[in-house]
């Protein structure tokens, strides 16, 4: 436990609402205990702003332990910071040097309009999910759980794909603001499981169609999404989605 004190300069994107134009604003944060988490540092700054009568910086956050996917913004050009496999809420101030300048920007994508400051609207992900990210099984109609045998490797691979927290870092870090890793992960989870086979073709086509309609960019296979993903989801899921999509185009009717 170091408990060192550091001071930072923050350049933060401030934007009143979706309709307004935004701009960068500069804040000095002094005497920060480096055991704080990054969001706690922002809490401290926000309390100071409120006391001064200035509107605090808005950002999405909830569980603060890296699982809900609510938080996320870009720090110095890196989604969720340059640390590997973490969300912003898991970032601690000890990773920074005294006197550093940090640039904080919201996820930038047409499909993720900024609502206020660092808070964006990611409902596009929900709409993609609604397009096909499920198995159509009514409550009460399920067979006994152990009547569906699933090889452990498939279950594990499906789990790896299913760990996506829907934070949007993949979109934010992609130079094309593409959502392929998010969609690929969901498509893969079901493509790998026997439960997902019935709707396999329909699912991939519907989800890709929705993804395109939301205005996400295309994949140029540079894997920045994988590098930024706090859960380390692999781009092999995108490849699997590509295969599924091709197969669906060939085999599916209509």
């Amino acid at each position: 436990m170091s408990g060192k004190r550091i001071s930072l300069t923050l350049k933060v994107w401030r934007q009143e609402s979706a309709k307004d134009a935004g701009k960068m604003a500069t804040y000095e944060v002094k005497d920060i205990n480096d055991e704080m988490s990054f969001l706690e540092m922002l809490d401290v700054l926000n309390e100071q702003l409120v006391t001064k009568g200035e509107r605090p910086i808005t950002f999405d956050h909830d569980c603060r332990e890296g699982i809900c996917g609510a938080c996320g913004f870009v720090i110095n050009g890196h989604a969720h910071s340059k640390e590997k496999e973490i969300t912003v809420c898991q970032l601690h101030m000890r990773k920074f040097q005294d006197g550093e300048t940090l640039v904080l920007e919201p996820w930038r994508a047409k499909a993720f309009p900024v609502l206020q400051d660092l808070m964006v609207d990611r409902s596009a992900f929900d709409r993609i999910q609604a397009a096909g990210g499920y198995t159509s099984v009514h409550t009460g109609s399920a067979v006994d759980a152990n009547s569906i045998l699933i090889p452990k490797v498939d279950a594990d691979a499906a789990f790896d794909a299913a760990t996506c927290i829907g934070c949007g870092a993949c979109v934010a870090s992609c130079k094309n603001a593409s959502a392929m890793l998010f969609v690929g992960a969901k498509v893969s989870q079901f493509a790998l499981l026997p439960q997902g086979q019935v709707e396999r073709e329909r699912r991939v086509k519907a989800m890709v169609e929705r993804m395109d309609a939301e205005g996400f960019g295309n994949c140029t296979n540079e894997y920045e999404c994988e590098a930024a993903c706090p859960k380390g989801i692999s781009v092999t899921n995108i490849a699997r989605m590509n295969r599924e999509f091709l197969k669906a185009a060939v085999t599916d009717q209509g």
């Binding site: 499920y134 198995t135 109609s141 067979v143 759980a145 045998l149 279950a155 989870q189």
Partner: peptide, 22 residues
């Protein structure tokens, strides 16, 4: 018990043994 059945049918990737059972 029904909860587990329902969740498995939904594609929840529960941990499995090598034989494929939960």
């Amino acid at each position: 018990s029904s909860i587990i059945d329902q969740c498995v049918a939904q594609g929840v990737p529960f941990a499995r043994e090598y034989g494929g059972v939960l």
